[in-house]
Amino acid sequence: MKLNLFKRSMIFATFFGSCLCIALIVASLGTTHWVDARARRLSNPTESEGRISFGLFEGRKELNFAYGWRNYDLSVKAGTHPARRWSWCGTAAQLAVALAASGGACVLAALGSAARNRCSPKPLLICNCAIILFTMGAMSVWLTEFFLRLQHNVMSDEDLANTWSSDSTADLGLSFWLVVTACISAFVNNVCILIAMADGRDADTIAPALEEKVNGAIMLY
């Protein structure tokens, strides 16, 4: 009961897709561009300017009061992160599960493509489904926070008191779209797995027919 070359190739292709998922999720967790925003002071909008970028755990805020730039660090530890605790915690937790599922998918893809005997690709399919589920969950949590809060304001109470505003200037940054790409990669993996599962040209179906022909030839002699 051996796998044919086509099935091995399709399963092995998911190994690279799973590695890509790992790289994308790790990059999204480590970069600080989940949201990029601009800011102005309502009291002097033509002379002031601000740039804010942050990830799930930290970020950076640069404000120009018309007499030079001032840089500030945004951090979860310091309590200066613009997003609320439930949003970055929920997003990070689901990405951690998706990362673990990606690692499992890598191992299963390597073992499945290297195994001489046929093994069920269902565990591999389940791992990739988990990646899709939890990356979509992470995106949903972050999008909820973005549309409810972050697109309207990423400034601190002190900045708001100084008439700074970022209303309608925030955009989803590169880090967020890395997660979207990881979700798409896992979906492509599932397509490859389903194609491999649907292909019926296993060696174990070919071998009995060949054996029957050989036995028939022997009987003729």
Rank of each mutant, 00 (worst) to 15 (best):
S53V: 03
L148T: 12
M219I: 13
Q151K: 14
K2P: 07
G137E: 04
S156D: 05
K61C: 09
G55T: 03
S48G: 01
L150Q: 05
W142M: 10
L74A: 08
I52F: 02
A101N: 08
D199G: 06
Y72R: 13
L5I: 13
G68C: 08
S156F: 01
K61N: 11
F147Y: 13
D36R: 08
S156N: 00
K7W: 01
A198G: 04
N190L: 05
E62F: 02
L108Y: 06
K7F: 01
S120V: 01
A186V: 03
H81E: 09
A203T: 15
A217H: 14
V141F: 12
A198H: 10
L172E: 06
N4G: 14
D199Q: 13
K77T: 11
A207T: 12
I193S: 04
N117S: 10
F6M: 11
L150K: 05
L178E: 08
N190Q: 04
P82C: 08
G103H: 07
I132L: 11
K7H: 12
A203M: 15
A161Y: 02
P121Y: 03
P82A: 07
G216K: 15
M10N: 09
I193N: 05
D171Y: 07
E145M: 03
T14V: 10
P45A: 07
V154W: 02
R51P: 00
A203V: 15
W88G: 06
E49N: 08
S9Y: 10
G68N: 11
L172V: 09
I131C: 11
A170F: 03
V154R: 01
N153L: 01
F6Q: 14
A109K: 03
C183E: 02
